[in-house]
C-alpha cells in the first residue's frame, strides 16, 4: 500500500518535470527558460533522493547535494549574464 503511494507520488513529480520542459522549449525569453530550468532542477533533486532511498544507495544523497550546489551557481551565472553580459 505505502509503496504504491510512493510510486504514484514519483510519477506525479515526473509529470511536473515534463510540464516544466514544455515551458523550457516554448519560453519566449531567456529568463523564461531559466525559470523552467530552475523548477526542473528542484524536482530532479527530490527524485534523486527518492531513487537513493528505494535502491538502498546512500551515496546518491551526496549526488543530490552537489547537484543542488551546481544548479544554484549556474542560475546565478545565467542571471549575471542577462544583466550585463559575461
Amino acid at each position: 500500500m505505502a509503496d504504491l503511494i510512493y510510486n504514484i507520488a514519483a510519477i506525479i513529480a515526473l509529470a511536473g518535470i515534463v510540464l516544466s520542459f514544455v515551458r523550457l522549449i516554448l519560453g519566449p525569453t531567456i529568463a523564461d527558460r531559466a525559470v523552467a530550468l530552475d523548477g526542473m532542477t528542484i524536482i530532479t533533486i527530490s527524485l534523486i533522493v527518492f531513487i537513493a532511498y528505494f535502491s538502498n544507495r546512500v551515496i546518491y544523497l551526496d549526488v543530490a547535494i552537489v547537484y543542488g550546489l551546481i544548479s544554484f551557481v549556474g542560475i546565478v551565472a545565467i542571471a549575471r549574464y542577462l544583466e550585463r553580459g559575461i
Binding site: M1, A2, D3, I5, Y6, I8, A9, A10, I12, A13, A15, G16, I17, V18, L19, S20, V22, R23, V35, A36, G39, I42, I43, S46
Partner: peptide, 24 residues
C-alpha cells in the same frame, strides 16, 4: 509510520506538480 510518510510524500509531489503547472 510508513503510510504517514507516503501521504506526506504524495502531498509534496502534488505541490511540485502545481508549481510546474504554474510555470507553464
Amino acid at each position: 509510520m510508513e503510510l504517514l510518510g507516503a501521504i506526506v510524500t504524495l502531498a509534496g509531489s502534488i505541490l511540485l506538480f502545481l508549481g510546474a503547472l504554474g510555470i507553464l
